[in-house]
C-alpha cells in the first residue's frame, strides 16, 4: 500500500512535494512515517488523567501495551482493544483506536466476534483476573480452545478492586479480603494450567515491574497468530494492599521485584514465582 502511493506521486515531480496534500500523502503513506510515531499516538490524551487510584499498575500496562503495538508497527486502524468490566476494563477507553468496553466476563466472546467479523483486525483484550478467570472463565476455556487470534492481557491484582476488595479467583490462600475475613479458604485458579492444557498454546507471565519482559511478552503474543494469554502480575493498593499492611504502591511494586524472577527459557512450565513465556 505504502509504495504504491509513493510511486503514484513520483511521475508528477514538477509539482513537487510542497503542497499540503502531498505532505499529507507522504506522512501517511511513506513507510518512514513510522519513525514519527510513538506509543503516545495510541493514547487518548483528552481522557487523561486516568480513573485509576494513585500508583495503580494498570496505567503501566496501558503504556506498555501501547508501546508494544507501536513497536510492532501495526497501523492504528487495524487495532481494536476490547475489555470487560472492572478497573482494568476501563483501559480500553484510553486507547486512541476503536475500542469496546463490554459486559462483565464477556470480553473474550465479544473480541472473538470482532475478530471473526473482520480478520484484518488485530484484537487486544485487556481485562482483569476477576473478569477473565472468574465470571468469564468458561469463555477463556473455549476461546483458547478455538485458538482465535487475539492477544489477551490479564492484569492480575489478586482482588476485585472496583467493588471494594473482595476475594477474586486468583487471591492467594489465606489472604484477608472483604469476603474472606478469616483468610481466603481456597487455592487460586491456575491460569497457566488452564491455558497450557490446550495442545496449541501461548502463555506468558509478566509483571508491572519487569517492564521490558512485559513489552516483549505482549509483542510476542500479538504477533503469534493465535490465541495468546499474558498474565501480568499487578497489585491493588487502595482496596487490598492497605488492608494487608502496605503503606503505598511502591511497597507493593517492591514486593513484586523481590518475589518474581524472569526465567528466559522455562522448561514447559513456569514455577509459582517465575516470569516467562510458555508456548508451543
Amino acid at each position: 500500500m505504502a509504495n504504491w502511493k509513493v510511486t503514484l506521486l513520483r511521475p508528477d515531480e514538477e509539482h513537487g512535494f510542497s503542497s499540503f496534500q502531498d505532505g499529507v500523502f507522504l506522512l501517511f503513506f511513506f513507510p518512514g512515517w513510522w519513525f514519527l510515531m510513538s506509543y503516545k499516538d495510541y493514547i487518548k490524551w483528552e481522557r487523561m488523567p486516568s480513573t485509576w487510584c494513585p500508583g495503580c499498575g494498570i496505567g503501566i500496562v496501558l503504556k506498555y501495551a501501547a508501546m508494544a503495538i507501536d513497536e510492532l508497527k501495526i497501523p492504528k486502524e487495524d487495532v481494536v482493544v476490547v475489555s470487560g468490566i472492572g478497573c482494568s476494563g476501563r483501559s480500553a477507553g484510553y486507547f486512541d483506536v476503536e475500542s469496546l468496553h463490554g459486559l462483565h466476563g464477556r470480553a473474550l466472546a465479544m473480541a472473538e466476534g470482532v475478530k471473526r467479523g473482520n480478520r484484518k483486525l488485530k484484537v487486544v483484550v485487556i481485562s482483569g483476573d476477576g473478569d477473565l478467570l472468574g465470571i468469564g472463565g468458561n469463555h477463556l476455556l473455549h476461546t483458547s480452545r478455538r485458538n482465535v487470534e487475539m492477544c489477551v492481557i490479564c492484569i492480575n491484582n489478586e482482588i476485585y478492586g472496583m467493588t471494594g476488595g473482595q476475594m477474586s479467583p486468583t487471591t492467594k490462600k489465606g489472604t484477608v479480603t472483604l469476603t474472606s475475613p478469616e483468610g481466603s479458604p481456597y487455592n487460586p485458579v491456575n491460569a497457566q494450567g488452564l491455558i497450557t492444557s490446550n495442545k496449541d498454546h501461548f502463555y506468558a507471565r509478566s509483571s508491572v515491574f519487569h517492564l521490558n519482559h512485559l513489552k516483549k511478552s505482549i509483542q510476542e503474543g500479538i504477533s503469534r497468530g493465535g490465541f495468546s494469554f499474558i498474565e501480568v502480575i499487578s497489585y491493588c493498593i487502595e482496596n487490598n494492599g492497605r488492608r494487608l499492611g502496605f503503606k503505598d504502591a511502591p511497597e507493593m511494586l517492591d514486593l513484586i521485584r523481590k518475589n518474581y524472577k524472569v526465567n528466559p527459557s522455562p522448561a514447559g512450565k513456569l514455577g509459582d514465582l517465575e516470569l516467562g513465556i510458555v508456548k508451543t
Partner: peptide
Amino acid sequence: TEDEIAAANMIVGSSLSGR
C-alpha cells in the same frame, strides 16, 4: 459457541466489526 451468553456477545462484536 460454548453458551448463549457467548453467542449474544459474539454477535455484538461481529456486528460492530461490520457484519
